[in-house]
Amino acid sequence: MIEFIDVHKSFGPKRVLAGFTLKIEKGESFVIIGQSGIGKTVALRHVAGLLNPDSGRVLVEGVQVNGARPAAMRKLRERMGVLFQSGALINWMTVAENVALPLSEHRRFPKKEIERQVDEKLELLELADAKYKTPSEISGGMKKRVALARVLMSNPDIILYDEPTTGLDPVMSMVISDLIRQMQRDFGVTSLVVTHDMKSAFYVGDRIGMLYGGELVQVGTPDEIMNSDNQVVRQFINGDLEGPIRAQ
């Protein structure tokens, strides 16, 4: 369903992706782990068409994302949602207005129907009390949940999660991780999660891939990653000071 084929991407002299290849099946939850600044978000943005590779191909349901025409891209994005690291909520709008945005801007449904759907999503994510608050009046965890509610409004088949638990306390991290699992379980959503939160990665992922040096050095189930012999993977999941990974 999501496929990276020999993707290369550099920013100036910095090589971020070098022969990045990966296939994610429909309904699967795949987690990319790796150091901060290693290129996990860059990989995710390629799927959303927010970045184009220098070479290689990125396919979503057989459609090539890089170089897609605007109409094709719009169609793809209608089936896709991104949970950005910051939540990316519009600051001057209330929680309800933010959640309604994907439908209200396109005027696909009557106002009453949009309100009903907003209430349903806010109820699902336990945000009903925050309906009329603005993003500056709610906590980081609530912002992530509001952003997720907004993503769910368009009933996407694919959700891309960019560091969904960063900056959250351990309990809220698990709440968000559980929501990601719930989306996959209840709605059959295909998930691509990038994170360096190992607890969340092991909980959320059907498979986990470790990004290092521009490519995935190991891909496996959470058990395989946990018991990996690969030195890079071992150092990263154990947080060891000694090993091939150097601070960037």
Partner: peptide, 21 residues
């Protein structure tokens, strides 16, 4: 600020034109 905090990208992901919005 909206640009650097991904809000413009979020609009584009919802197929909302930042120019119109």
């Amino acid at each position: 600020t909206m640009k650097v905090y991904d809000e413009i990208d979020a609009l584009e992901m919802m197929s909302i034109s930042p120019v119109k919005f």
